[in-house]
Design a protein around this nucleic acid. Structure first.
Lengths: 343, 343
DNA sequence: TTGTAGGCGTTATCAG
DNA sequence: CTGATAACGCCTACAA
C-alpha cells in the first residue's frame, strides 16, 4: 500500500472496460475524434483513422451502444413482435428480416408473446423502453391504446403478414380474404362441393375462412363443417381433424386446411383409412411450407413469399428511419395458388 | 407568436418524451423516488407508489432503458446467437428460452448468422457493444479470440445443444456422440447391417456420425456410404438423398438420417418407388420433430427435450447474473431413442 | 422512507 | 479536419 505502481498509459489501475477516453489517451487524440473515426470515417483523415485503429487494438476497446444510443437518440435496434416462432409460417420471414436488418447494421430484439400469453400491448410497451429505432408487428389487429402509444412516440412501425388500407404506419403483407376467395374459386372450379375444414385458431386464418365462405356462397353453399385446432398447427392435429370430421357422419369431397402441416396430417390419416387423395378426397393447404411440393401426393396450397415479407419490411423500415424516401408505405407481396396433386 | 400559453405543469412546452424528472415534478416527489417505485417497490411506501403511478399515467412516461442500463450497468437483455432459425431443431429451444427469460424480466436480442454467413466472432463482438447481461451461444466450437473476448468481458455465457467438460462458462445440452452410439446400437440390435446415410452439413451432425461409425466398427463395418446435403435439412433433400444412394448401385437395409425431415423425405421417396418401410428398408431420423410420431409409418428417431434446453439455459444464466448460486454449470438434458415403425 | 450529488460512456453543437 | 463543452436520462452511492 506504500507506493502504487505508476499508472500505465491504458487501464492498468482502472477496473472497468476500456472506454473512448482510454483510446483517446493512448492515441493522443480527443474522444470525439475516436467517435468520429468509428461512426463517420469520412470526416476523419485516413492516417488519423489508422492511429485510432491501432489504439483500439491495443486497448481492446468495445464501444458501448447504450451510451451511444442515449446520446445520439438512435439505438440501431429494431424490435420485432411475433406471436410465436415455433409456427413454421413466420420463421422464414423472421430469418429474412434479421438478415436484411444486419445488412443495414441493425440488430433485432425479438419478442414472442409465447405461452405466457403476455398481451402484445404489454409486450410493446415494455419494448419501447429500449428505444428501438423501429418496430415490426405481426398482423393488423392491435389495441387502440397500443396504436395511440405508438403514434405518440413516433417510432416507425411496419405491420406484416396482413393487409389493410389503414396501417399504423407502414405494411408488408397480402390479403387473406383474397386468398380465401381464390381457394374457394379453385376448388369450385375443380368441381368439389362437399367441403370440410380443419382450421387453426388464428385471426388471419379466420379471415381466410371468411373469404372462402364468401367465395362459395354464390354457389349456394352457406356453411362448411369445421374442426378447430390450436396453434401451432402440426401434422397430428390434421390427422385428428379428419377423424373428427368423419365422425360427424357427413361425406366430404374436399378438406380445406388452414396450413400445410394440417393438410399433411389429413393426407396421412386418409392414407391410413384407405381413402385415396385426391381421387376420393381432395386436400388443400396454405403456406407452401418446404415439404408441400415434394410430399406424395404433393399438396395443393397457396404460396406466400415469406422471405420477401421480411426483406421488404426491413427495407422500408430502415429507409424511413434513415430519412430516405419510401415509395409506398403499403407493400402487397401477393400470393400464388399452387395447383398440385392433392386437390 | 406574441404571447405563449403559460407552460403547463407537464411537458406542454418540451419537445422530448417525458422523463423521470417530469414524473417527479408532477408527483411532487424526487426523481430517485420514482426510480425506486419502479425498480424496487419494496423500498417505497405503498401510498407513495400510488402517487407515482398516477403521475406516470398522467405524463405517459416510458422509462429509458438505455439510460438505465448505462447508469446501472445492467441491461436486462440477453443476447442469443443461433446459426439459423429456419432450422426446425432450434426453434422450440429459442421459444422456450424467450418465454423463460420473459418470466425473469429479460429481453432477447436474437442474432442469426444467416445467409450472410457473418462469422459468429464478428456477430458476438458486435453484440457485446449492447452490453447484454448474458449470452447464449449455440454449440461449443468457437474461435479462440471469441472465447478470450468473452472471458475478458466476464459476461455469463451459456452454450447450448452440445456437451463438453470444458464449456466457456455454463452449458445445457447433450452428447451427440452418445446419440450416434445409441443409434448404431439400436440398428445393429435390430439386425440391420447395410447402412446408408443422408446427412446435413452441420458440425453437431458430424459428431453424431462419428458416434455411429464408432458404434458399428466393432461389428466389422468400417464405412457407411453417405450423401451430404446442405442445411436447413428439408424433406426434399431426403428424397434426393435416397435417389442418390440408390444410384450408387449398392443395396441398403437401413438409411440413417441426420434429421427427421430428411427421414420423412427418404420414406416418401421409398414409397414412390414401391419400397416398403421398414420391411424392405428401415429409416432412422433425429430430433423427434412434431410430425415424427404421427407420420405413417411413424419415424424411429431420437427425442431431444428442446424446450428444456431453452428453459434450463435461461434458468442458470439468470441465476448467475443475479448472483444466485448455480448448482451445476453443466446440464446434460440427455436424449431418448424412440423406437417406432420406420426402423 | 426519502433526498442530494455525481457520474455512467457517448455524441451534438459549436468553435477553431 | 479536430477539439472543448454540455447534454442524454437514469442510478449508485451516501446522507438525512
Amino acid at each position: 500500500m506504500v507506493a502504487r505502481k505508476s499508472a500505465q498509459s491504458t487501464s492498468e489501475n482502472r477496473p472497468g472496460a476500456p472506454t473512448l477516453d482510454d483510446v483517446a489517451r493512448v492515441s493522443g487524440l480527443s474522444p470525439i475524434t475516436i467517435s468520429r473515426a468509428l461512426n463517420h470515417p469520412h470526416m476523419v483523415r485516413p492516417q488519423t483513422i489508422e492511429k485510432v485503429n491501432a489504439a483500439i487494438a491495443l486497448t481492446g476497446y468495445i464501444p458501448n451502444l447504450l451510451a451511444g444510443g442515449l446520446a445520439s437518440k438512435r439505438s440501431k435496434m429494431i424490435a420485432v413482435a411475433v406471436p410465436q416462432i415455433n409456427n413454421a409460417m413466420f420463421v422464414d420471414s423472421i430469418q429474412a428480416l434479421s438478415d436484411q436488418l444486419a445488412v443495414y447494421g441493425y440488430h433485432m430484439l425479438l419478442c414472442l408473446a409465447g405461452y405466457a400469453q403476455q398481451s402484445e400491448e404489454q409486450l410493446v410497451s415494455a419494448i419501447l423502453s429500449r428505444k428501438p429505432d423501429g418496430i415490426v408487428l405481426t398482423g393488423i389487429n392491435h389495441t387502440q391504446l397500443l396504436k395511440k402509444r405508438l403514434l405518440l412516440t413516433g417510432v416507425p412501425v411496419v405491420e406484416i403478414w396482413d393487409l389493410t388500407p389503414t396501417p399504423i404506419d407502414m405494411l408488408v403483407g397480402f390479403s387473406h380474404e383474397k386468398v380465401g376467395n381464390d381457394i374457394a374459386g379453385y376448388l369450385m372450379g375443380k368441381g368439389y362441393r362437399r367441403f370440410g375444414m380443419v382450421w387453426a385458431d388464428d385471426e388471419r386464418a379466420e379471415i381466410r375462412r371468411q373469404g372462402i365462405l364468401a367465395g362459395v356462397k354464390p354457389h349456394g353453399i352457406t356453411d362448411i363443417p369445421i374442426i378447430r385446432v390450436p396453434t401451432p398447427a402440426i401434422l397430428e392435429l390434421g390427422r385428428q381433424g379428419l377423424v373428427q370430421l368423419m365422425a360427424t357422419g357427413q361425406s366430404f369431397d374436399a378438406i380445406i386446411c388452414s396450413s400445410d402441416a394440417l393438410a399433411q396430417g389429413v393426407i396421412v390419416e386418409a392414407g391410413i383409412n384407405g381413402i385415396s387423395v385426391p381421387a376420393e378426397l381432395a386436400v388443400m393447404g396454405f403456406g407452401d411450407l418446404d415439404f408441400a411440393h415434394c410430399c406424395s401426393p404433393s399438396i395443393s396450397t397457396v404460396h406466400i413469399d415469406k422471405k420477401a415479407i421480411g426483406q421488404r419490411a426491413a427495407d422500408i423500415l430502415i429507409a424511413k428511419i434513415e430519412g430516405r424516401p419510401v415509395a409506398n408505405n403499403i407493400v402487397d407481396v401477393g400470393f400464388k395458388l399452387m395447383a398440385r396433386q392433392s386437390a
